[in-house]
């Protein structure tokens, strides 16, 4: 968790705590105003906690994003680890060679089955179509020339 204790991250944690306590405090203030007879304050009393929740949500998302972007130095990274050869090479010395996870999602292409089957031609055509789609990210399926 060291990478969440850099100065920039500490500033974010502090900002999150300050904002959440402020918003909850404002919500509580509106509750007291509502209890004192200002009926319109009930609406604000609902709104402030929602904004506080939103702050926590964005903070939590950033934390998760940071943890995913910089994989843990411990070996045996789960899903993000590439093929075993690369994995061994990457975790060899200092782990700097390890590819950054979370930047690009690997594309899973359907593997052509090695056994004979009547739908091999269809499958190959479909795979050609998939690789064409992969090579032309902006294209729509209707643009496929094949």
């Amino acid at each position: 968790m060291k990478r969440l204790w850099t100065p920039a991250w500490i500033a974010r944690h502090v900002a999150m705590v300050v904002l959440v306590t402020t918003f909850l405090g404002l919500g509580w203030w509106q509750v007291s105003r509502a209890a004192a007879g200002n009926a319109i304050s009930w609406g604000y009393a609902v709104e402030w906690p929602i904004f506080a929740g939103f702050v926590v949500f964005v903070w939590w998302r950033e934390v998760r994003h940071a943890l995913r972007a910089a994989p843990a130095p411990a070996p045996g990274g789960e899903v993000t680890a590439p093929a075993s050869d690369d994995h061994r090479a990457a975790s060899g010395e200092d782990g700097t060679e390890r590819p950054r996870a979370g930047i690009r999602r690997p594309v899973r292409v359907t593997r052509v089955s090695d056994g004979p089957g009547e739908d091999d031609a269809d499958l190959a055509a479909y795979n050609r179509y998939l690789s064409w789609l992969n090579a032309n990210p902006g294209a729509k399926p209707g643009d496929y020339p094949g």
Binding site: R104, R105, N134, A135, N136, P137, G138
Partner: peptide, 10 residues
């Protein structure tokens, strides 16, 4: 992004 399409779909 459209001018320089990336080879890998994200």
């Amino acid at each position: 992004r459209e001018a320089a399409p990336e080879p890998i779909a994200g």
